[in-house]
C-alpha cells in the first residue's frame, strides 16, 4: 500500500456502517468526516450539497460509489479524503449507479494537489474484491488494515 493513500485518510476521516436517511444526510456524513479530520470547514459540505442540487448526481461515479466534492475554495484547509460506509444504501438519483453505500468525500486544495491520490483510490476501487471488503468494515482501523493488506 502506498503511504500517500493512507495519509490522504487522516485520523477521524472514516466512519463505518453509518445510518443515513437520504443522499443529503449521507453527504453531510462524508462532509463532517472531512471537517473532523481537519481537511475542510463546514462550509465545504454545503458547497457539495449545492453542487449536487445544481448539477445532479454525476458524482456517483461507479455502481454504489459516490465521490463527493466541490470546487477548490477557502473552505478547503488541506487536501484529503473521507469515507462513509453506509449501513443501508441511499439513492442519489443516478440512473446508472444508484443505490450508493460507499460515500467518499474529496477535498482538493488546488487543481492538481490530489491527482495521484485520486488515481490510487480509483485503482483500488476498480477491484471488486476491495469494494466488497470495504462494505464490510466496522471501524476506521478495519479500513486502515484493509488498505495495508491490499
Amino acid at each position: 500500500m502506498s503511504r500517500r493513500l493512507a495519509e490522504a485518510f487522516a485520523p477521524g476521516s472514516v466512519a463505518a456502517q453509518v445510518a443515513a436517511a437520504d443522499w443529503r444526510a449521507a453527504t453531510r456524513v462524508a462532509g463532517e468526516l472531512l471537517v473532523a479530520s481537519g481537511r475542510t470547514t463546514p462550509a465545504y459540505t454545503e458547497d457539495i450539497i449545492q453542487m449536487l442540487e445544481e448539477l445532479g448526481p454525476y458524482q456517483v461515479i461507479a455502481p454504489g460509489i459516490a465521490l463527493l466534492h466541490a470546487r477548490p475554495s477557502e473552505a478547503v484547509l488541506t487536501t484529503g479524503l473521507s469515507l462513509a460506509v453506509l449501513e443501508k444504501p441511499v439513492e442519489f438519483g443516478s440512473k446508472a449507479n444508484d443505490p450508493v453505500r460507499l460515500v467518499f468525500g474529496l477535498a482538493a486544495q488546488h487543481h492538481d494537489s490530489h491527482i495521484e491520490v485520486l488515481a490510487e483510490t480509483a485503482n483500488k476501487l476498480s477491484s471488486p474484491r476491495f469494494v466488497n471488503s470495504l462494505l464490510t468494515i466496522h471501524s476506521e482501523s478495519d479500513f486502515q488494515r484493509l488498505l495495508s493488506d491490499s
Binding site: 453542487m51 445544481e54 448539477l55 454525476y58 458524482q59 461515479i61 465521490l67 463527493l68 466534492h69 466541490a70 470546487r71 477548490p72 474529496l106 482538493a108 487543481h111 490530489h114 491527482i115 485520486l118 488515481a119 480509483a122
Partner: peptide, 15 residues
C-alpha cells in the same frame, strides 16, 4: 469536464 474540475473530470481524464 465536470462541475468542479477536480474529481470526476480527473478520473475521466485518466481513463
Amino acid at each position: 469536464v465536470c462541475g468542479a474540475g477536480v474529481g470526476t473530470s480527473v478520473l475521466l481524464k485518466m481513463n
